[in-house]
Simulated assay, not measured.
Amino acid sequence: MMHEPQTLVPATETKMTARDVNVFYGDKQAIKGVSIDVDMDNVTAFIGPSGCGKSTFLRTLNRMNDTVASARVEGTITLDGENIYASSMDVVQLRARVGMVFQKPNPFPKSIYENIAYGPRIHGLASGKADLDIIVEKSLRRAGLWDEVKDRLHDSGTALSGGQQQRLCIGRAIAVEPEVILMDEPCSALDPIATAKIEELIHELRGRYAIVIVTHNMQQAARVSQRTAFFHLGELVEYGVTSDIFTNPRQERTKDYITGRYG
């Protein structure tokens, strides 16, 4: 008797892969043998207690750890199959393709317009003012900020509220046409209303960019992500479908963290 084949989860487009990644700061090992895939169709959340390595690992995905003299990264990380730690990799170009949004909003001390226009200008994405105007409007619309700032584009970006500044930083990342957006606790400095707007924005950006978010807030991870990776003491303990991680974790350490036994 023939059995019907099991329905498989449709394959998604893998954007970045990490294999056996170790990170050292001097003699101290911060990341131990992490392997993970990041795809285009799902928002991936990294969760875990403070100091577990989730932000350190996030920073390996666009070589932000290069800025730390004592940091050393081992293993392989690829973007579209290309090793991002290869000597031939242009790090400036990599960071345009893999954008980063930090915990504390950090707009440039320039106008709202110039915050967005700066990246496209230095990367040669615009041939003139008319092109830049289009990029600025499109980026601010995608960042959910256009209607709030369109009449004051020449005001300083630092004059915006914290939540608006964070959306400006997301718009700034989007403006250089990235493929991946990394977010390192993007809401931790924001109030609940501003946080809700950023979460809504993440939903809207999903599928257009591969998105990875580090968050301390487990409810946030449950709300915004479809894949969750649980880090503990520098190890990737468990990685899977977000709803499974939160309702039926396979690892005892994950269960302890989710249920609040430690963290």
Rank of each mutant, 00 (worst) to 15 (best):
A45H: 10
A45Y: 06
A45D: 09
F46S: 12
I47N: 05
G48H: 01
P49H: 03
P49N: 07
S50E: 06
S50Q: 06
S50L: 10
G51P: 06
G51M: 02
C52D: 04
C52R: 00
C52H: 00
G53N: 04
G53I: 03
K54C: 02
K54W: 01
K54R: 01
K54P: 03
K54L: 03
S55M: 09
S55Q: 05
S55Y: 05
T56M: 09
T56V: 14
L58H: 09
L58C: 11
L58F: 10
R59F: 06
T60M: 08
T60V: 08
T60Q: 05
T60E: 11
T60A: 04
L61I: 11
N62W: 06
R63K: 07
R63E: 12
R63M: 09
M64G: 08
N65V: 13
N65W: 11
N65G: 09
D66K: 06
D66R: 09
T67Q: 15
T67N: 14
T67E: 15
T67W: 12
V68P: 14
A69K: 15
S70F: 04
S70A: 13
S70V: 11
A71R: 07
R72Q: 11
R72M: 05
V73Q: 07
E74P: 01
E74N: 10
G75Y: 03
T76G: 03
T76C: 05
T76P: 07
T76K: 12
I77Q: 01
I77E: 05
I77N: 05
T78F: 02
T78Q: 07
T78P: 03
L79N: 02
L79R: 01
D80F: 04
D80W: 02
G81M: 10
E82I: 09
N83M: 11
N83G: 11
N83I: 09
N83S: 14
N83V: 12
I84M: 02
I84C: 01
I84S: 00
I84R: 00
I84Y: 01
Y85I: 06
Y85V: 08
A86G: 01
A86R: 00
A86K: 00
S87M: 08
S87H: 09
S87Y: 03
S88R: 14
M89D: 02
M89I: 01
D90C: 04
D90E: 04
D90N: 15
D90P: 05
V91Y: 01
V91W: 00
V91R: 02
